[in-house]
């Protein structure tokens, strides 16, 4: 590379870094200073907004978000695993309809929320966390199944066939061979589901009415346009909301990226 190109590339990197990092820096800064202080680098930091946040019951929101994320994974993974395995390893009449799984995640969840509310009520789980978990599972399943199918396809079939000849049934082959080999894929599906569930706002908004059942994004949207712009408090909430997906992403990013690529290209 010539020098100008170098300069150009690094200028680009710096520019993109700036536009990505600055909003987050400003959010962090705002959460740690008193409202009204506008210095770029504040002189005095305070944890008052975090104190206010937790005194305001934000811990409950975090707990709800955790329960919902974990619940969504617990229900999504086994079902997606079974289905993904079936789609990757068997030929059967009607299999071509599985392409529907690619289209379903592209349809707007918000459109069917209204009928779903009546459904949840019918099931007696309206206004509980179960309904949010159920909805999260329903909307995560198509994409997750498709991703797992992709991972299973990338595992050489011969290994399993060898096991089958050894006398294992297909279920045993699934557990002893396919799952361990597809573990990185499963982890990426899990992380993907976790982050989407953590970030989802609509389901909690539509299916629960109580503050003690609200998830973090729903509580945060409540801050916006409620009464006044308490930017310190709102950004403290934002920082707390950012941390779990960010940490998970940083730890598992390799698998996560692999998963996204596998899911969208196969």
């Amino acid at each position: 590379m010539t020098r100008t190109r170098w300069m150009f590339a690094w200028f680009g990197v710096l520019f993109i870094l700036l536009i990505i990092v600055f909003p987050m820096y400003w959010g962090l800064r705002t959460s740690l200073t008193e409202n009204g202080v506008l210095d770029f680098v504040p002189g005095r930091l305070t944890l008052m907004h975090y104190d206010g946040l937790f005194a305001g019951g934000f811990l409950t929101n975090i707990q709800n978000s955790l329960i919902i994320s974990m619940g969504t994974i617990t229900f999504t993974l086994p079902i997606a695993l079974m289905s993904g395995y079936a789609l990757a390893r068997f030929d059967f009449p009607g299999k071509r309809f599985s392409a529907v799984l690619l289209v379903l995640p592209l349809l707007p969840a918000i459109a069917v929320l209204v009928p779903l509310i009546l459904y949840m009520r019918g099931l007696g789980i309206y206004n509980t966390l179960y309904s949010v978990i159920l909805a999260g599972t329903v909307f995560a399943l198509p994409y997750c199944t498709w991703m797992i199918r992709g991972f299973m396809l990338s595992i050489p079939r011969e290994i399993e066939e060898a096991a089958l000849i050894d006398g294992c049934g297909p279920i045993k082959a699934l557990f002893s061979i396919a799952i361990p080999l597809a573990a990185p894929g499963l982890i990426s599906v899990a992380i993907f589901t976790l982050i989407s569930a953590w970030n989802n706002y609509l389901f909690s908004f539509a299916f629960t009415t109580k503050r003690e059942l609200q998830v973090v994004p729903a509580a945060l949207l409540g801050f916006i346009t409620a009464w006044g712009n308490n930017y310190g408090g709102m950004n403290a909430g934002a920082v707390v909301a950012i941390l779990p997906p960010l940490i998970f992403f940083l730890i598992f990013q390799k698998w996560f990226i692999q998963g996204i690529l596998a899911g969208s290209s196969k």
Binding site: I67, L129, F175
Partner: peptide
Amino acid sequence: GVAASGVAVSGILAACQVP
């Protein structure tokens, strides 16, 4: 696998019951 999913499910059920 069984243990992990068992723990997870019971965790969820217990957690859901609180609110």
